[in-house]
Structure formats: structure tokens, C-alpha cells
């Protein structure tokens, strides 16, 4: 069962990471994208990144949490350096 829940948690967190990247003002400026009208408030997305990990830690324990954390380390780097 661990596999599925970790996969789910990583997916939710990764989606949030992509959202964080897309709404990051400095990133948009460097990529030459128009700045968003609304003020940049990342709290909801940050919560969406972290919450699945904490849930995993509580429900599945250390190994699942460690897989999630390490996977996000790689995915975060990938999202930040690749996607627009």
C-alpha cells in the first residue's frame, strides 16, 4: 500500500511545486512572462507541497516520508530548471 500513497503524495506535492514555480515573480521576470496582477501569496501552494509529506509521516511512517522528501528534492530541481 505504501507505494500508492507515496505516489499520490508526491504527485500532489509536485503539482504544488509546479504552481509555485509558475507564480514565482522573479522567475516570471527572468523568463520574460507578464507579471501577475494579484499579489504573490504562496502560502496555499507551500501548504499543498508540505501537507502530503506530513500526512505520509503520520500514516505510513519514516520510509514513506523519506522517499517523498528525496523524490521532491529531485522533482523540485527539475521543475525549477526545466519547465516554463
Amino acid at each position: 500500500m505504501m507505494g500508492l500513497s507515496v505516489l499520490g503524495a508526491v504527485t500532489v506535492s509536485a503539482v504544488a511545486l509546479v504552481r509555485l514555480a509558475r507564480t514565482n515573480p522573479k522567475r516570471r521576470r527572468i523568463l520574460g512572462l507578464p507579471q501577475q496582477a494579484t499579489h504573490h501569496r504562496p502560502l496555499a501552494a507551500v501548504t499543498m507541497v508540505c501537507a502530503p509529506g506530513l500526512l505520509l509521516l503520520g500514516m505510513e511512517g519514516g520510509p514513506a516520508f523519506t522517499v517523498w522528501l528525496s523524490a521532491l528534492t529531485l522533482l523540485g530541481w527539475g521543475v525549477a530548471s526545466l519547465g516554463r
Binding site: 522567475r27 527572468i30 525549477a80 530548471s81
Partner: peptide, 29 residues
């Protein structure tokens, strides 16, 4: 700066971006 993309090319700033971005994400591990 966790989501600041690497500015392309061979400029100094690109080299710096590459190292800092990877280094920031890699820090914990």
C-alpha cells in the same frame, strides 16, 4: 530563489545559476 531558472548560455551568470539552483535543492541530501 528556489524557482529562479537558469539563464541560458555560457555567461558567468548562467554558470552561477546552474550551481546555485542545483546546490539549493541538493542541500539537505
Amino acid at each position: 530563489d528556489l524557482f529562479v531558472p537558469v539563464r541560458p548560455g555560457r555567461r558567468l551568470v548562467s554558470a552561477r545559476d546552474r550551481h546555485v539552483l542545483a546546490g539549493s535543492w541538493a542541500l539537505l541530501f
